[in-house]
Design a protein around this nucleic acid. Sequence first.
DNA 1: TTCATTACCTGACACATATCATTCTTTTAC
DNA 2: GTAAAAGAATGATATGTGTCAGGTAATGAA
Lengths: 229, 229
Amino acid sequence: MEHRCENCIVRKFNALRAMSKDELKAVADSKVSRKIKKGETIFDEGEKLGGVYCVRDGVSKLSKLSANGKDQIVKLASKGEVLGQRSVVAEEYSNLSATAVNDMEVCFVPKEAIINTLHRNPDFTYEVLRHMAHDLREADDVIVNMSQKTVKQRIAEALLYMKNRFGEDTEGFLTLVLSREDIANVVGTATESCIRILSDFRKEGLIRTSGKRMAIADDRKLQDLVDGF
Amino acid sequence: MEHRCENCIVRKFNALRAMSKDELKAVADSKVSRKIKKGETIFDEGEKLGGVYCVRDGVSKLSKLSANGKDQIVKLASKGEVLGQRSVVAEEYSNLSATAVNDMEVCFVPKEAIINTLHRNPDFTYEVLRHMAHDLREADDVIVNMSQKTVKQRIAEALLYMKNRFGEDTEGFLTLVLSREDIANVVGTATESCIRILSDFRKEGLIRTSGKRMAIADDRKLQDLVDGF
DNA sequence: TTCATTACCTGACACATATCATTCTTTTAC
DNA sequence: GTAAAAGAATGATATGTGTCAGGTAATGAA
């Protein structure tokens, strides 16, 4: 049997926690669980979304294709986050595409259940609003970082972010494994530049690597770099 | 006597149009009109906002100071737009500062009236949400532009944006007059680079200038530049 | 007006970053 | 396990942009 939203822990982290019992029941009845393999896309830029995707497990990258064919990763979403919220709320085509960074499990929730609740339950709407306000603030910060920080600083920041947000395993390696290309797309640089800078970091003892896995060896120095020292 | 929100045309452009008569009355009773001179700041980054500012007239730049002392302009707000919305909704300190680009007239609306309505009137909350969803989309686009387009392309785009958004006078000059420094801060580049590129544009016949005033002479070529031709 | 300040402009130069080409390594799939 | 594909690494080179330094023109205040 499928999981019931009412008992889903993931819900605690997103706006669905503000739903009433009945509303949640409606969501649970209409939702569809879905497994997504690493590298598969959940939805594409320009697609009309029929609902939102609630992430139960795994990590997704939200990216936008630029004119010169490069993908800019705008956000990484993990357990508890809801994908496609913005597009459904604004009733627009998606401005981003979502791709699984590792194997994922998501629940697709048809938009009707969401929109109904948005019209009737101000607590829920307010909660969604607060999440979006938070996203907007983060987006503002990214804009400033993009234009004012060097690639080196942005990569250092991305590494620290990955550690803080997704943690590290028992050996100290970052839990979230991203390819150099993905990291380059997060900070908005060429893959080669990213690789070069990561090599520098390794040589300077700021990070350790083992295959695709990466570990932060000197938080302090990385942070100093970000702050411009 | 002060203007009444109920009759304010500006309201039609923002979320306040979804307020009930009574709610609007409460806003009108608590609001304070204020004139702001060109160059004055409305609020500062890190400030705790006691409410939002509804723009009746003039243009404001919303900017964020970066570590290296440069201002990044994140958004330009004009008639009908509401400043400080994000901070009030999220109950956070402001992440941006707002400065008048020209003489302005704004109405300060204490947050209580707003927050009360957010909790009670789902139509209003939904409306605010839709506006924020729109802002978020724009922010995503800016992120991609920042990281993938050249300074030249971004300046060309900014000029076209200024024309489309704020229009031009009878002589064809852009209505919104920004200093080169402000334009540089919009596109995230050095003032000198901005000046140089605008000079190039002038020499190539893409724009005309007369003192601080600027006119777009060749929309088509500017657009081609933006698109990478 | 005159002075002071701000905005604008230009040149020279350094440097960060992108691009292209090539090799080596790791991962994936059959 | 092996082949094929994908990812990582590195060098050489070109170039876009930032920085510093020195101007002129425009603007505002006394």
